[in-house]
């Protein structure tokens, strides 16, 4: 059986994780692959920790990624990246926005936001890519396009036609927000 590829998306409710996983899944479907994606709705939307699994290949059974077999941890927030780091396979990589969002206990001042998370990610998984998602999104014109910036960065390391990504974005994003999202995607593609 040919290999199934596994992308785990992580972040905080409201960051657009589910839209990003929709876009990735549509690209895989366009490429003629079997694809499954999984996520939890409901309580987690209230600012909680959110994950979504995307798997693609010739034939995919489980929509949940087998533990320890994540190829790419695609994450929108630093702390959430580290929470799911143990699920990455050896030689896996993280594609991460270095945005920090304080969880409730940090916001209340009872514990500090953990330090040196970027170093932790890069020392364990040296091929990881850290993107200044928030500033690139602001430069594109809308703070809420961090997810699209990150999709641009992700598209650089996946072997699918750029046209497919653009088509998927056009299908998924309301027309009034399309221009700013295409700009954000481009900024992500250029990010080093």
């Amino acid at each position: 059986m040919s290999k199934v590829n596994n992308i785990l998306l992580a972040g905080v409710g409201g960051q657009g994780i589910l839209l990003a996983s929709e876009v990735i899944s549509e690209v895989m479907l366009m490429a003629g692959l079997d694809v499954k994606k999984n996520e939890i709705h409901g309580m987690s939307q209230r600012g909680g920790s959110v994950v979504s699994h995307v798997r693609y290949g010739e034939k995919v059974y489980s929509s949940i990624i087998p533990e320890g077999e994540v190829d790419i941890l695609f994450s929108f927030e630093l702390l959430e990246t580290c929470r799911y780091l143990p699920l990455l396979r050896k030689n896996g990589r993280a594609v991460v926005s270095d945005w920090k969002i304080a969880p409730p206990s940090v916001a209340r001042g009872t514990v500090p936001y953990p330090k040196d998370l970027t170093q932790k990610i890069c020392s364990q998984f040296p091929s990881s890519i850290i993107v200044d998602g928030l500033n690139l999104a602001l430069a594109a014109g809308n703070a809420k396009t961090v997810n699209t910036v990150l999709l641009g960065a992700l598209s650089n390391i996946l072997d699918f036609d750029r046209e497919m990504w653009l088509t998927a974005l056009q299908q998924m994003i309301p027309s009034r927000l399309l221009d700013v999202n295409l700009k954000a995607f481009e900024a992500g593609c250029q990010a080093k």
């Binding site: 309580m43 909680g48 533990e67 702390l79 409730p104 936001y113």
Partner: peptide, 29 residues
Amino acid sequence: TPGRVKGQLFDQDSPTEDTSAELPPRPPS
């Protein structure tokens, strides 16, 4: 999950998310 089926039937450990105290939880609010 795939890991739990394998782990529970054949007594194999599989990795889980990091729940250590250094990473504060993020419950809904």
